[in-house]
Simulated scan of single mutants.
Amino acid sequence: MPIINAAAEKMAQDKRDIEPTVQSCKHNRRLRKCCFDKHEQLVAVRTLPSGAQGLAEVVRREANKELIVRKMMPHKQVTYYRGEDEIPEEVKILRDFLPDHDNVIKLLDYSVSPDHVTLFTPYYQGGDLFTLTYNYWQAQIKVLAMVIWQAFRQMSNALAFLHHGYVASSGRKRSQWRPIIHRDVKPANIFIRAPINPKVRPLQPQFVLADFGLATVDMDNEEDVGTPEFQPPEGSTVTGAYDVWGLGAVIHAMCRENAPPIGPMPPDFPGGIHKWVRTPYARLPRSVASKYSIKLEELMMKCFKVNPEERIQSLSLARLIEDEFRPGGQVGRRVMKPIN
């Protein structure tokens, strides 16, 4: 009898090892182990800059020496998707609502412990767009127009995909698409697949929109989130116009040494920075035509309409930018030529 019990216990243990561990815990959250928890040894390499949501670090998979990113967030910092299964909304969006897109980060796997949610995503060796712009600035070199145009092109395509299911390569929208609003588009949340040396012209920079921790599919969500310097005057609302302003602010920062389009707050302004950034007076985007081109400035300014209903939609923006590119992927001469 003991032998039979031991065999049964071994079979049960083998089954637990194969399947993700899913069980209830307090607050009705479901515990889950992922493949990295069970089958691989991970070695922390370094910590990455991260916001208030949790800890992000680069880890090495000892099996194949591949570098990936592990982001750990306490439950109180995680928004849960209320559906058939209660899972983090970031996981639901990346795993179920967003099929593969070249300019959107992928979710490799995730786990849920009693204290944390852990997400595993690819590691991009080029770092983030904020650091890249800073490196150009430190080298006393303006960011190359080609790099800015590619960032503008690829991120507008990413937003058009999130908002409308638009696929630039086919020029078509997916049917029955569920809109996704990122709500935190900024240079630090845009990664670069390969390193870019400011002193060397890159062949074809590739950008990836990341950090969907504040993203939502809930169009009734009125939660005040995001980064104030990259928020539009209307504040935090769940609309595509919110993300489009953020993209315009990203391009503005690339053109003007990481300066977002926000004027300095008067010392006597009541309410502090969070109210100031929502006033039209705070939004004073600077001209970029003298350094780059009138066309770049024209498209960027379409993102900065104070009235969100007048702001260009991501789908229209993506199509306009695509029209500026030759079949080979380079911007036409009339766009690239600086206007003195």
Rank of each mutant, 00 (worst) to 15 (best):
V59P: 05
E89H: 05
H27E: 14
C35Q: 09
S111R: 02
S50N: 01
I18F: 08
M11I: 02
L55R: 13
K26W: 12
I18K: 04
A63Q: 12
Y81K: 07
T21S: 07
V45D: 11
D37A: 14
K26P: 01
S113M: 04
Y81N: 02
H75N: 00
E66F: 11
D100V: 06
K26R: 06
Y80E: 01
F97R: 00
K10A: 12
V104I: 15
G51R: 08
I93M: 05
V59D: 02
A63T: 11
K33D: 15
E66Q: 15
S111F: 08
I87S: 07
V22I: 11
T21D: 09
H75T: 03
F36H: 04
N64Q: 12
K71V: 08
R82P: 00
V112L: 05
M73E: 07
E89T: 08
D96A: 04
A52T: 12
K65Y: 12
C34E: 07
V45I: 14
E19S: 00
D109M: 04
D96I: 01
E90F: 05
V59F: 11
K15A: 05
R60C: 13
L67K: 08
K71S: 11
A12V: 01
C35F: 15
F97Y: 03
T79P: 00
C25R: 03
I105D: 01
D37P: 11
H27Q: 10
V104N: 01
A56C: 14
H39D: 14
P20L: 03
R60Y: 00
Q77L: 00
M11K: 03
H101W: 12
V78R: 03
A52I: 09
I93L: 04
R30H: 13
Y81W: 15
V104Y: 10
D100W: 15
L67Y: 15
F36E: 04
Q77P: 00
P88D: 07
E57W: 10
E62W: 09
D17F: 10
D17I: 06
V78Y: 02
V69I: 15
H101E: 03
V58D: 01
V43K: 12
N28Q: 07
G83C: 11
L42Q: 05
Q13I: 04
A63N: 10
S50V: 00
P74K: 10
K10I: 14
I105P: 02
D14I: 03
R30A: 11
D14V: 04
R30T: 13
E86D: 08
M73N: 02
L94R: 01
K92A: 05
H27K: 11
P114K: 05
N28I: 02
C34F: 10
D100A: 06
V22M: 11
K38H: 06
E62H: 08
E86G: 07
E90T: 04
I105R: 02
E19A: 01
K38Q: 12
Y110Q: 02
E19I: 03
Y110A: 02
C34T: 06
Q77Y: 00
L108P: 04
D17G: 00
S111V: 01
R30W: 13
R60T: 08
K92C: 05
G54Y: 13
S113V: 06
V91K: 04
R46F: 10
E57M: 15
N28F: 12
E57V: 11
A52S: 13
I87G: 05
H39A: 14
Q77S: 08
